[in-house]
């Protein structure tokens, strides 16, 4: 079955919050209005969306912290409602990295406590706690009480906690929030390594550059519904975003432009004569594949000589803004 490939399956997930307003008033917030996505085992999947989109809510449902109101959610084939215990054994969660620990006891003690809660034996929990503190670079602070930790240190400890039980599935809600450049990078490398070693990772975040470096696939949600999904490349090409093509040819700029304009949907073009050659910059609304095919076919059958060529990809950020904001940048 195809499903066996997926470590996480979310089908038509709905979640409502009931918010009290004033003394008697009640309001229902539809945080998730029936979202579906799945994550292939061993891959890194990113959940993107603006603030309040429902990313954290989704992670909480997957981590069994919240009960879904409707829909089916499976982690490693286990239902998060009916087989919550089995799910808990298999996932590691880092949520809201700035809290979740007893503030008066040390990071090390917090980790050991957590390990024991997860049912590890005492010696193993102690060993794992030490290993992970070293992995995230907190060995020096291991024995200081948690309340003395900086935000970044707390984030690192939260990641250590998520990894403590060596889970198959990692749910990381904005794991690099508050980390300095170097730490964020080492966390990214760590996430990559973990995925290579076969772990399935679901990550959220607002740093598109970071997500683009990490994610194998992406689901973009807004207002509790999925508005786009696929690999970063698919997303970008599906949207038919603008590609910027820079060319340097040997002759006849004017004519080149005329022909190309008939051939492709050009949004903007500029030609400058460099004396011995002509420089052309074009914005073309076509997927990367189509663009390259059309352009190269035309060049092959013409007698232009191409002296230089470069093409600028739209970034994931462009794609994200295009779907979320309904506008296209560039």
């Amino acid at each position: 079955m195809l499903r066996d490939m997926d470590a996480i399956v979310v089908e038509n997930l709905k979640k409502y919050y009931i918010v009290r307003e004033g003394f008697k008033g009640r309001k229902v917030v539809e945080a998730l209005k029936g979202i579906s996505f799945s994550v292939r085992r061993g891959s890194i999947h990113a959940l993107l969306g603006p603030n309040g989109a429902g990313k954290t809510t989704t992670i909480k449902v997957l981590a069994t912290l919240l009960l879904p109101d409707d829909g089916k959610v499976l982690v490693e084939g286990f239902d998060v409602v009916k087989e919550a215990d089995k799910v808990r054994k298999r996932v590691g969660v880092a949520l809201d990295v700035s809290k979740g620990f007893y503030s008066s006891i040390s990071g090390y003690e917090n980790l050991v406590f957590y390990g024991l809660l997860k049912g590890m034996d005492f010696n193993y929990a102690k060993r794992r706690a030490k290993e992970l503190l070293e992995l995230v670079g907190l060995t020096d602070a291991a024995n200081r009480p948690y309340y003395t930790y900086s935000l970044g240190m707390r984030a690192k400890l939260a990641i250590a906690k998520a990894l403590l039980s060596d889970p198959d599935v990692l749910l990381l809600d904005e794991p690099t929030l508050g980390l300095d450049v170097e730490s964020a990078r080492s966390v990214r490398n760590l996430i990559k390594e973990l995925s290579t070693s076969g772990k399935t990772i679901l990550i959220t975040g607002h740093n598109m550059h970071e997500i683009e470096l990490l994610a194998d696939s992406v689901t973009i949600i807004n207002n509790g519904t999925v508005i786009a999904s696929g690999t970063p490349a698919e997303l970008k090409s599906k949207l038919g975003l603008l590609h910027k093509v820079n060319l340097r040819i040997n002759k006849d700029g004017e004519e080149f432009v005329r022909i190309v304009k008939d051939l492709m949907p050009i949004e903007g073009i500029s030609v400058s004569d460099l004396g011995d050659s002509i420089k052309i910059a074009m914005y073309i609304r076509l997927s990367r594949d189509e663009l390259i095919q059309k352009l190269f076919e035309f060049l092959k059958n013409s007698n232009y000589r191409v002296l230089d060529f470069s093409m600028e990809e739209p970034t994931l950020e462009d794609a994200y803004l295009a779907v979320v904001g309904g506008t296209i940048s560039g």
Partner: peptide, 13 residues
Amino acid sequence: FLEVSSTILETTT
């Protein structure tokens, strides 16, 4: 106010 509830809820009932 200690905000450790998620630690407890994510591991046990």
